[in-house]
Design a protein around this nucleic acid. Structure first.
Lengths: 232, 232
DNA sequence: ACCTGAACACCGTTCAAGT
DNA sequence: ACCTGAACACCGTTCAAGT
């Protein structure tokens, strides 16, 4: 993730006069590279959000001129695509799963997927707009495979996969967005109470205050899986 | 939606010299108003997408200076909020539903919700970032109500509501985004085929070519509802 | 092959004025 | 009360050059 230590710097660049303090250069920036650009873009996105990523700021962080980026990268869009994909790799469950435990496998992968996106809150809302990077495809393949083993009919397979996709994406985008505004949520629930009888049911169940996101995600996922492949 | 016909124009504005063609003024713009701003913003968003809405362009369409908008509206963000809410009203099913038909009621509302957002493709991805306008709250209230009648336990009610929310939002955001790039989807499926054995299952089921969006949405919704409130 | 600065055509918003 | 233009501090990207 962090920039690589040192070594390279344009081969024989004349290095104008070995100065008095050769240790700790002002900034020993390694040369630009796709890798470094993507890693830094992820850092910047994590720190400042989608609106915080500008080509000029990214170049600043990399210690280069803004236009230098365009030699490595087609456009700002491409930076988004690359940053997104770099964040969605799946390494699988800690131990090889029992082959009949399709449910555990699916739940683990989906919770990991969600967790990866929440670690990089800009990623979830970007994904549906682009999708289809190799890391996502692997996850879908895993899903498809597990659901087949679960006995989902071939004709229902795509429906089942998209349902899970929808559920995960909806949950994660929502959570990533709401999180930023905890105060707002309390304020909203208060407004609900003030409005009194217009929304009696959701006011009573404190829908907007419910902040057990992880538990809610898991329970809802169980319901959905139950609908897709009933236990009996 | 369109600008109102005529009448007003700053009362006694001197109207420099009643010219030769008094019919069909250059543009008989009515004065600015929140209503007109919001309606025009929706038009502009429909036509140009989220990135197409700028305060300057919006002002142009309204025949005013860019800064005039700020008298009626706090910021560009506020314009988004208002445009979004204006697009999400629910008028209910065509006929009063049988009170025991909670499922029909839920399905109708959710399909209408999805359809409203697809009519304005910018709206779905905006909603999770803001949520909580009165029109959305009404829809959640309806959901809560129907699910109670369906026999969902009080303790599961919020989970059930958020599950449906997640499903609808995920489905609609995904569809709204993929739609723009039909060619890409075919290309992606082709790439899948080329990659051959890396993704055998989803390649075989033509996951990425499936374009029966409405049917898939409906079937998946049925699975989810079955999980939330089993028929027996 | 890799990097650069100047320039273009845009942004949202502050401010001090105008009517 | 309502609208305005100039100005500020930004954008992404094209282009013609530099090494």
């Amino acid at each position: 993730m962090a920039a690589k230590p040192s070594s390279a710097r344009g081969k024989q660049s004349p290095r104008r006069g070995a100065s008095v303090q050769p240790l700790q250069e002002p900034r020993g920036e390694p040369p630009l590279s796709l890798e470094r650009i993507v890693a830094t873009a992820v850092e910047l996105l994590d720190a400042q959000g989608v609106d915080g990523l500008s080509m000029r700021r990214l170049a600043d962080r990399l210690g280069s001129g803004a236009m230098s980026l365009y030699w490595h990268v087609d456009s700002k869009e491409a930076v988004f695509d690359l940053a997104l994909d770099s964040v969605l790799e799946y390494r699988g469950p800690p131990r090889a799963p029992a082959p009949q435990d399709w449910r555990g496998e699916v739940v683990h992968m989906l919770e990991d997927w969600r967790a990866s996106m929440l670690r990089h809150p800009w990623s979830a809302s970007l994904l549906p707009r682009r999708a289809l990077g190799p890391n996502i495809l692997s996850r879908l393949e895993l899903l498809s495979n597990a659901l087949s083993r679960a006995g989902v009919a071939q004709a229902d397979l795509n429906v089942a996969i998209w349902s899970l996709w929808n559920y995960v994406m909806g949950a994660t985008i929502t959570r990533g967005s709401f999180e930023l505004s905890d105060n707002d949520r309390v304020a909203a629930q208060q407004r609900l109470a003030d409005l009194g009888e217009r929304y009696p049911t959701i006011e009573r169940s404190h829908l907007l205050l419910d902040d057990n996101w992880d538990g809610t995600f898991r329970k809802g996922l169980d319901f959905l899986l139950e609908g897709l492949a009933p236990k009996q």
